[in-house]
Every structure is written in C-alpha cells, then in structure tokens.
Amino acid sequence: MNKLFKKIFFFSAYTYSTTIYAESGMPQLDPSSYVSQTFWLILTFVSLFLIINFFFIPKIEKIRILRENKVEDLIKSAERFNAEAKNLKLKTENELQSAKTEIDKRINNLIKKNNELIEKKIKEIDLNLEKRILLTEEQLKEKKNEFIDNVSKYSFEISNIIYYKIVNERNEISSNEFKKLMVENK
C-alpha cells in the first residue's frame, strides 16, 4: 500500500513538474506544428491505408471466400447425404412392405393348406366313425339274433327249473326236443 501511494506521489510529482513550466493556452491553436502534423498524418495514414488495402484486405477476403465455399460444399454434401438417406429409407420401407405382403401371402397359403388338411382329416375320421358305427350295429344285430335264438333254450331251462321246484321231478326232455314239441304244438 505504501508503495502504491509512493508511486502515485511520484507520478503526480512528475506530471506536475513537466507541466508547471508550460505556457498557458491551447497548444492545438499554435500553427507552428501544423505542417509537421499534417505531413506525418498523411504519411502514416496513407502508408497504413496502402498496406491494408493491398496486403491485408485481400487476405481477409480470400479466407472469407474460402470459408464460404467450404461451408457451401459442406451444406451441399450434407444435402446429398440427406437425399441418400431418404432414398435408403424409402427403399427399406418398400422392401419391408413387400416382405410384409410376401409373409401375409405365405401365412394365408399355409392357413388354407392347413384348413384343407384338417377338413380332409375330419372327413376321414367321419368315414371311419360311420364304418365303426355300422360294424357295431351289425354286431349288435348278431348278438340280438343270437339272443333271440337262445331265448327258447333259456326259457326251457327256466321252465324246467320251475317244474322241478313244483313237481320235484326231473324232466327228461332235452331242450331241442322241447323245441320241436313247441313247434309241433303250434
């Protein structure tokens, strides 16, 4: 802090001492330096202008044009890539669509085939069933006939038993004879 104040003090003292002997009035209105100032102004300004105009501005313009071209190229290639991507998307969508229709077709075909197969099987089964029913019916009929055939035999035996129980005597007639007897008595 002390150093800073010392510095300020010395700076103030310096400026004070350099200005204390100055003449009063505006130095700007003293024409003695006009020629020199104008001369150096023209010299510096013109040289600065010439160097900037012929050396630096073309450089700046060049790099700006380069950058513009580069950006344009990049935009163009981006557009191209975009179009390509769109095309690819369209293609894949188309392919997907065709694949879908193909699959649908195949599925439909399969369903049809399966249905046909199932119908065929059902028909076969039906046929078999009918055959079996017929067979069973026939067997039943046979059994029935057999039973009917045997009815007289059984009835004879039963009657025989009943007879035995009542009379307590055995009948010597065989069933076939009895049958014959029954037929003759009719």
């Binding site: 400026t15 004070y16 200005t19 100055a22 505006m26 130095p27 100032q37």
Partner: peptide
C-alpha cells in the same frame, strides 16, 4: 500547471 500542457507538441 495548465491541464492543456499535455497537448503540447515537442520535437
């Protein structure tokens, strides 16, 4: 000191 002294031209 004059505050205008800073504008003085010195050769």
């Amino acid at each position: 000191a004059s505050p205008l002294a800073q504008f003085e031209i010195s050769k």
